[in-house]
Design a protein around this nucleic acid. Structure first.
Lengths: 130, 130
DNA sequence: GTGAGGCATCGACATCCGTCTATGAGAGGT
DNA sequence: ACCTCTCATAGACGGATGTCGATGCCTCAC
C-alpha cells in the first residue's frame, strides 16, 4: 500500500489554519497531523531546492530535464520528489508535449508561512500583541 | 540521538536566509540541508503540538509534566521531542528546581516563516537585537 | 509503423525516525 | 540518610523515507 499517496486533497488545513498561528492556541491532534504532513513535504533538501529552482526558473516553471542535472539526483528520484510536492499542493504539473512543466502554486508557501509566523503573515491577517 | 549534532546552536541559517526567501533564487545544497533540518524539527505532529502547547500555556512556558498527559505520549518521548526542538533553536529550557520549563524562542518561528513567504516579507520582521 | 526522447511507476535496499520500557541523574522534603 | 518526584538518557524495535536501476507509458518525428 502506498501509504504516502494518501493525500489527494490540497491543503484544507491551511484554509482552516490560515489565521490562527500555532502559537495562539494548542493544536488538536488532527490539525497537527495535517500540518506536519505539509511541513514534511518541504522538510527535505532536495525538495527545498526543487521549489526554489522551479520558482527561480525562467517563466516560473521548469521541466524535469531542467532539474535533474543541477540537483545531482537521478530522474526517478526527482520525479518522486516533485510528486510529493504536487501532492502537498505546493506545485502544479502541466504536461505539454513530452515535457512536464512544474510551477509553484501561488500562495501555498505563504499559507504555510502564515501558520508559523505571527508577524510574517501576508497582508490582511490580523496580528495581535503576542 | 546526538548523531545529529550538526545544529548545536540557534539558527544561523535563518540569519543568513532571513531576507531572500527560497522563491527568489535557487538554494545551494548546503543551505537547503540546513533549512531542511530546521523544517524537519517542526514536521512532526507531536512537536507541532508541543510548540503550540508551550506557547499557549500560562506564562508562555510549560514543564514536561504539563505536556505529557495532553499529548498522550510517554514522558521519555515528550522529552525527546522537546530536545529536538531545543536543538533546532525553537525552544529554550530553563531548569528550576526539579522541573524543566520550556518556552518559545522569540522570532524563531517567524524566521522560518520568512523563508517560506515570498510576499510575506513585509515591513521587515521585528528582529530584536539578540 | 517504427524509433527515439521524456517522464512516471515499480521493486528493492539502506537509512532514518518515532515510540516504547527500563534505568540513571538531580533536587527536595521528612 | 532515605525516599520521592521530575526529567534525561540508553537500548531496542517497527515503520516510514530517500535513493537507485529497470521498466512501461506517452508523445512526437520520420
Amino acid at each position: 500500500m502506498e501509504s504516502m499517496v494518501a493525500v489527494p486533497k490540497s491543503l484544507p488545513l491551511l484554509d482552516a489554519a490560515c489565521c490562527p498561528p500555532l502559537v495562539r492556541a494548542p493544536l488538536d491532534a488532527d490539525t497537527a497531523a495535517e500540518l506536519a504532513h505539509a511541513f514534511k513535504a518541504i522538510a527535505d533538501p532536495a525538495r527545498l531546492r526543487l521549489l526554489s529552482m522551479v520558482a527561480a526558473h525562467d517563466g516560473g516553471e521548469a521541466c524535469v530535464c531542467d532539474l535533474t542535472e543541477p540537483l545531482g539526483l537521478s530522474q526517478p528520484t526527482v520525479s518522486h520528489h516533485l510528486k510529493v510536492l504536487v501532492d502537498a499542493g505546493l506545485l502544479t504539473r502541466d504536461r505539454r508535449g513530452i515535457w512536464s512543466y512544474y510551477a509553484l502554486v501561488p500562495g501555498a508557501l505563504d499559507a504555510l508561512a502564515a501558520v508559523l509566523g505571527s508577524s510574517a503573515a501576508p497582508a490582511g491577517v490580523a496580528r495581535s500583541t503576542g
